[in-house]
Design a binder for these strands. Sequence first.
RNA 1: GUCCUGGUAGCUCAGCUGGAUAGAGCAAUGCCCUUCUAAGGCAUCGGUCCGGGGUUCGAAUCCCUGCCAGGACGCCA
Length: 537
Amino acid sequence: MNIKDIIKEEIIKSLSKMDIFEAMVDLEVPSDKKNGHYATNIAMQLASSLKQNPMDIATNIKEMIKNDEYIEKIEVAKPGFLNFFIKKDKLFDVIEEVIDLGDDYGKSQMGEGKRINVEFASVNPTGVIHLGHARGSAYGDNLCRILSFAGYDVTSEYYINDGGNQIDNMGISVKERYRTLCGLDEHMPEDGYYGEEIIDVAKDIYREYKEEWLSKPVECFKDYGLNKLLTIIKNDLLTFRVDFDVWTSEKKIRQDGRIEESLQKLSDLGKTYTEDGALWLKASEYGDEKDRVLVKNDGEYAYITPDIAYHLDKIDRGYDTLIDVLGADHHGYVPRLKAAIEALGYSKDKLEVKIVQMVRLLRGGEEIKMSKRTGNVVTVNDLLEEVGIDAARYYFAMRNIESQMDFDLELAIRKSHENPVYYVSYAHARVHSLLKDNKTQKVKEYKTIDSEYAYDILAKINEFKNVVELAAEKRLPHLITNYVYDLANALHIYYNHEKILTKDFQYTNERLLLMTAVKIVIKNALNLIGVEAPNEM
RNA sequence: GUCCUGGUAGCUCAGCUGGAUAGAGCAAUGCCCUUCUAAGGCAUCGGUCCGGGGUUCGAAUCCCUGCCAGGACGCCA
């Protein structure tokens, strides 16, 4: 049990002595350490219901807490805060815990093994991965890492949209590019795909088959392109350190009859009707602004229909929660998808949709439009070549997905060496160089360290697990990024204020143990956002 | 027009979902390497938290309203 939990329990115990059992005790780390290691506002929360002065309530709680083992002192402050100061020697306990647990330090059982499916990236295989996709991919991947560290049973999943019109279009586009290579007239469709990679696919076909394929149907070009583009996407994602447990194909969902199955289920439940030659879902019964077409009057499925089947498929696989990570341009789609899930008889909370806001791409202050159709896209590979993978992953992980983001390439390249990722990496490398030629020995008691800067580090390390839990619960990976930055900051400050390597063994040993703990926590935290912790810089 | 996100220092953004004197990085200025990595540290400068109401012990945070920016509103995908 960590120190925070111990204190929380003490507060709950003393409240129960006052016959209060249902209070929400929230412990926070005060921004100013003059206010202790932990603080609670519980007395102020209770003031109105108890009809007492919060200062008096706080004093009562304080009087009832007797724990000399961990608590140095408790202060009652201004409007009614209770500030807890931890015994300094107890702060050191965490060092041994970190060293013993190593890569596992910070792990939580919060998730209780609940099964979560996180679907993200899912870029249509009609082009390559661009910068906008990269943000969502980084977010989804970070979320998976954090959730599984927090004790959830996580499946990361990519949905391959290989069954709809857009794929047919891709096939046509490839074929037309191929015809050009054969010296024939090209008839690129208006809504075709004009990306460079489509031409590359056509070139590959030409290289392999010369003019043999002129008589082949579009289907062949489609399959060839799909295979090729999907391979490129997979590799790009792998380079970006994003991997998936499951790849699900829309085509397969269609072939397996899952669509008919889900339509049947909806119809059995009385959630569909026919009008104007089309089949409709009664989405407006579930908070959507209007009903939605499932089967168009030409007999084709609407976009949402295979998607409903896909979500039903995920539910049938037994997940407690489904998380979809979608781009902001799809947010209008969310109510109808949720409506479909509810219509199928499941709670709408079963599906959680995280919307990733747009990345506006600039070069020297001027916006570059990201469209797969113009061919003028900045790909993940372009980005990685210019700024490097760690800087890119860190950059995406710094920001809340709910804010729109301007990405100025010129700035990113020019400033890549100023990216905060190097601040954190540097802290890790500094610590490594202290540790690499020196052995440490376990100690029972830390006798020589009495520096405020060291206590700051220890307080941070103590907090790690709580940050992991909060990031998992709120689905906010950037909390980890903020945390690791603060820890690196505490390390740099300490490093500049106190000498670590000396001839005195005890003195040096105690500090090296502290450094070992710092190194482990930085590495564990960076791992949660897909960033490597270098030993040298 | 309706709906979804944002609006915090010159710039890019945090602010732990209601707490104590609103914080970082970059930019600007001045210090600190004969000592473990100066990609670092210390200090200074910089704010109408978009405007206006409200809720309460307490609001950048919650509610209402106005303004600005981006996005979404198909039997497209």
